Amino acid sequence: MFKKILGFTAAATLALGLTACGEEEAGTDTNTETGTETETETVSVGEQVDHTIIGIDPGAGLMNITINDAVPAYGLEDWTIVEGSGAAMAAALTSAYENEEPIIVTGWSPHWKFSAFDLKYLEDPQGVYGGAEDVHTIARLGLAEDHPDAYTLLDQFQWEPNNIEDVMALINDGMDPEEAAAQWVGENEELVSTWTEGVNSVDGEELSLLYVAWDDVIAGTNVVANVLESVGYEVELVQVDAGPMWAGVASGSGDALVGAWLPTTHADYYAEFEGQFEDLGSNLHGTALGLVVPTYMDIDSIEDLTDAE
């Protein structure tokens, strides 16, 4: 039966227990002292990782797809999906990678891990993770009338995966998100000027941006907040879970969010609150979702998780 494990400790403990990389093929070992040959058995990828996939936050769209779609589609009912957080997943991946141990994680890009490590997505022949997604900016109804310059800036905000990954890398290296955003904005004035074109300065008007604690969303939200503050807004950043994030903008208690992954990850929230917000469109193209492994692992497809058992 399909199993789930909750919590950071479980993820870290499991990661420390993974001690081989790639699939060990059947063959023979020779005792150098006696010359005796013994047969060695094939160790499947599933056995190497204890039939475990390290996941992220419970309820995240990526986790819902993995548990509700990927598991039955690929016959992984005997696998364990560890529920924890993005930080727990990254810690487990870092530990395994540094020791060249096997590990399978739920992954998405843009993310700093692809800059830090040599990783690959497992092929998804069933297409359960869908194609590339976009990250959208979502505003509350009435924002254009109440704060037209903020609305214009948010509507014009658009960048590329390599831009956000630069900010994420600074944060991962230990810089405070606010400081990382300020440094990136200062080094990318030409791009930022396209967001502020036609935007007038204001005098301390208050805005709130809602965000989830995902590395990419933290980076993007802090960058947008920095630019809004540069034209005179006082911006409050409010960290919540995905559901409250969407509900907050839909109810008008939050002004906007810049981390809506569509059309897959946040599809349920989009449908639930449709008509209660304004979708300003994509601010970033070229995202991806799926199962991720280090390139040193000898596996290429999710199908191989079943075939190798």
Rank of each mutant, 00 (worst) to 15 (best):
N68V: 00
H51N: 15
L280R: 06
L284T: 01
G107R: 01
S201T: 13
K4L: 15
Q276H: 09
L141V: 15
G17D: 10
P58N: 11
T30F: 02
I67Y: 05
Q126N: 14
L237T: 09
M89V: 07
F114N: 02
T32L: 14
D300Y: 09
G220T: 10
A150G: 08
A70S: 13
E206S: 15
A181T: 00
F8W: 14
I171M: 04
D29A: 15
L143H: 11
V227T: 03
L141P: 09
A182Y: 04
V231W: 04
A169M: 15
L170D: 06
A70E: 03
D216R: 11
A70H: 04
P263K: 02
M89I: 07
T9C: 13
E145S: 07
L153V: 05
G290T: 09
V224S: 03
S282R: 04
E309K: 07
L18I: 08
A144W: 10
M175K: 12
M89E: 06
V227P: 05
Q276K: 13
N222T: 10
D166H: 06
A60Y: 13
H147D: 12
D268N: 11
V82F: 04
T34P: 07
V231R: 03
S208M: 08
Y269F: 14
V82R: 08
M297I: 09
G254A: 14
L262R: 06
E205K: 12
L209F: 14
N163I: 05
L305T: 06
E165L: 00
P72M: 08
I103A: 02
I103L: 04
V167A: 00
E234M: 02
I65K: 10
V292L: 02
S44F: 08
A250S: 11
A88M: 06
E101M: 14
T196H: 08
A92H: 02
A73Y: 10
H51Q: 14
F157M: 14
H136Y: 06
W112G: 04
M89S: 15
D29T: 13
D298H: 05
H266V: 15
E197R: 09
D203T: 10
W159C: 11
E234V: 07
A15K: 01
T287I: 10
E25R: 14
T295Q: 11
T137Y: 08
K113N: 13
Q126I: 10
A11I: 03
N188Y: 06
Y296W: 05
E272Q: 13
D173Q: 13
V185C: 07
G232P: 03
D134K: 13
L262C: 04
A219I: 07
V135M: 13
N200W: 00
V167Y: 00
T221M: 00
W184G: 02
E190K: 13
K120R: 08
E309L: 12
F8K: 12
T287N: 11
G55A: 05
L76Q: 05
V135Q: 12
I54L: 11
V71N: 08
L93V: 11
Y74A: 06
S115E: 11
D304F: 06
N226A: 14
L207W: 06
G290Q: 03
D215Y: 03
M168H: 01
M89C: 15
Y269V: 03
